[in-house]
């Protein structure tokens, strides 16, 4: 077993006074891929938002240890600098800001936090070239404004490209498969698999088992009503595909 990256204990969170997470327990170690599945409204996206530090959500209980630090005490940008990456379900458009400039700024800020010199332009461009090839992102898209006018598939590929550039320790993919056709799905999955090392870990949040044919999880967790009600291996996902969630929910109730 690898080194512990994140340990979530009894995590509770609410938005506008409504409790969404009702006590999440989850530990992820290096080298592992965890899938979180569950019906709509079970709290999957809330979990990723809370881990990334979105302000609208109020954490009302529990703790999150991330690489020995109290994650909940860190600002969103500090979480990023510490290697936490969230691939957004709906990547945001930033008109007038080129993808390249955006990433250059992001990398420079991280370097500053780590007390390193910013990467020289030449090295940076070489890295862009290498990493964009992973998800087959064209030069045209790299120089366009961040996500502006990108198709759904291009946006998701761009997320994985950014992930590759930032080299996170823990990546959370929030429904990265939604809106992808089978080719784009394969490209995205291929990118994620290539980026997997013995030193990092991935949490894949998804509705469908389909993505897990390409990104094979070590663990599958079922989230329902703000709690993880079942944990298994990849076969659990297959079983869910076949039988749906109802049987599990009944068992839980």
């Amino acid at each position: 077993m690898g080194e512990q990256i994140i340990k979530i204990e009894g995590l509770k969170a609410e938005i506008d006074g409504k409790e969404i997470l009702k006590g999440i327990n989850l530990t992820v170690n290096t080298g592992e891929i965890h899938a979180i599945m569950g019906p709509n409204g079970s709290g999957k996206s809330t979990l990723s938002s809370v881990l990334a530090g979105r302000e609208e959500y109020e954490v009302t209980g529990g703790s999150v240890d991330y690489l020995g630090k109290d994650l909940l005490e860190l600002d969103p940008e500090e979480r990023s600098w510490e290697g936490l990456f969230l691939a957004f379900q709906y990547p945001v458009e930033i008109p007038g800001v080129s993808n390249i400039n955006f990433l250059k700024t992001a990398l420079a800020e991280k370097a500053k936090y780590q007390g390193r010199e910013a990467m020289p332009a030449k090295e940076f461009l070489a890295l862009v070239k290498e990493k964009s090839a992973l998800v087959e992102l064209s030069d045209k898209l790299k120089n366009r404004s961040v996500n502006e006018g990108f198709s759904g598939g291009e946006k998701k590929r761009n997320e994985i490209f950014q992930m590759a550039m930032l080299e996170p320790r823990l990546s959370i993919l929030d429904e990265t498969d939604s809106g992808l056709d089978i080719d784009a799905l394969r490209i995205v999955a291929n990118g994620v698999n290539t980026l997997k090392t013995e030193n990092n870990a991935t949490i894949v949040i998804t509705h469908y088992q389909r993505l897990l044919d390409y990104i094979v999880p070590d663990f599958v967790h079922v989230l329902y009503d703000g709690r993880i009600i079942r944990t298994g291996d990849k076969n659990l996902a297959l079983e869910l595909e076949e039988r749906g969630y109802d049987w599990l929910i009944k068992e839980f109730a």
Binding site: E55, P76, S80, F85, V92, L166
Partner: peptide, 8 residues
């Protein structure tokens, strides 16, 4: 938030 998450 998107920028913050990328460390900006």
């Amino acid at each position: 938030f998107y920028c913050l998450q990328r460390g900006i």
